[in-house]
Amino acid sequence: MNKLLKKTLKIVLPILLGSFILYWVYRDFDFSRAKEVLLHGTNWWWMLFSLLFGVMSHVFRGWRWKQTLEPLDAHPKTSDCVDAIFVSYATNLILPRVGEVSRCGVLSKYDNVSFAKSLGTVVTERLVDTLCILLITGLTFLVQMPVFLRFFEETGTKIPSLVHLFSSPWFYVSLFSVIGVLILMYYLLRMLSFFEKVKGIALNVWEGVMSLRNVKNVPLFVLYTVMIWICYFYHFYLTFYCFEFTAHLSFLAGLVMFVGGTFAVIVPTPNGAGPWHFAVITMMMLYGVNATDAGVFALIVHGIQTLLVIVLGIYGWLHLSLVNRKRG
């Protein structure tokens, strides 16, 4: 019964957290405006172009993952690596951050790749990606420092009065987001401690982590990493051209919002729902877009990008089943 309750809470709590933040952000929103823009004010060619970059970011990630597995004498099918990435992102919609574990399970099932070793390569990947986003954030902050400072001020992060702090609705959105991240870290630490108790698992995970040292083609690994982040950025930035009220926003504006949105999705909600909207809307308003249009942008773009994750997840699952059935 306790296990069932814990599993239920792992699914329900992220949804509740995301729903609460979404409600808070859109509590006074005019949804008729969103419907009007969706039906008559969206340039779908630009949207499709942006989605292409979304697909390719997963493909490059799958190719890069295959590289880190090769030093472990693991040679999964390339399409299986990509499909596993598709499935993992879809899984994250139901159980945030569990997708990273699920993709290891996919290769274990279909390609006989050691689960523990592949999990280690995922840890390595995340460390590399963390370094990338910190580098991007540092450069963006230096170039657009006044915008970030205004963002901190307007969200209650930098204000002179504690009374103002506790009366700011954005403070509570930020507070619940931080609490969500802390809960996620707690479960991740518990998961790590569980692995350490199982004989041989920790050693295999460490072997996977260190696989990066023996990657055969380092320049190709770097290229894949760069392409992943370029695709992530253009997956977001090109959506500016889908709407008249955001088409004027600059490359640097897109970079600022991309950084803000990237940190927002750390909060364990389905595809960052809620925190991502909050960050993007607030930052977009700093660039002169009115609150309603910024809300429309976040609602439509996040909704369509989430739909893409679902479609790719279904495709990946079906393709894995079909290809491996033929192989068997």
Rank of each mutant, 00 (worst) to 15 (best):
5 L>A: 13
6 K>E: 11
9 L>I: 13
16 L>P: 02
17 L>E: 01
20 F>I: 14
20 F>W: 13
25 V>I: 15
28 D>T: 08
30 D>K: 14
35 K>V: 12
37 V>M: 09
41 G>F: 01
43 N>H: 03
51 L>C: 08
54 G>E: 14
58 H>A: 06
62 G>P: 00
64 R>Y: 07
67 Q>F: 05
72 L>R: 09
75 H>F: 12
77 K>T: 12
81 C>Y: 06
84 A>E: 12
88 S>W: 14
88 S>F: 13
88 S>E: 05
89 Y>G: 08
90 A>S: 14
91 T>G: 12
91 T>L: 11
95 L>F: 15
96 P>Q: 06
96 P>R: 04
99 G>I: 12
101 V>C: 05
102 S>N: 09
104 C>P: 12
107 L>V: 11
117 K>W: 04
119 L>C: 04
122 V>R: 10
122 V>S: 10
125 E>K: 14
128 V>M: 13
129 D>F: 07
137 T>Y: 02
140 T>V: 09
141 F>S: 01
142 L>Y: 12
148 F>Y: 09
154 E>I: 13
161 S>E: 05
163 V>L: 14
168 S>E: 07
173 V>L: 14
176 F>D: 07
176 F>N: 08
180 G>F: 02
193 S>N: 10
200 G>I: 06
201 I>M: 05
205 V>T: 04
207 E>C: 05
209 V>Y: 07
212 L>A: 13
215 V>Q: 03
220 L>H: 01
230 I>D: 01
234 Y>H: 04
234 Y>R: 03
236 F>L: 10
240 F>Q: 01
241 Y>K: 07
246 T>L: 07
253 A>R: 05
263 F>I: 02
266 I>K: 01
271 N>T: 09
286 L>G: 14
292 T>R: 03
296 V>R: 06
302 H>D: 02
303 G>W: 08
307 L>H: 06
308 L>Y: 07
311 V>L: 15
312 L>T: 06
313 G>F: 11
313 G>E: 04
314 I>G: 11
321 S>W: 11
325 R>F: 14
326 K>E: 13
326 K>A: 07
327 R>Y: 11
327 R>Q: 12
327 R>M: 12
328 G>S: 12
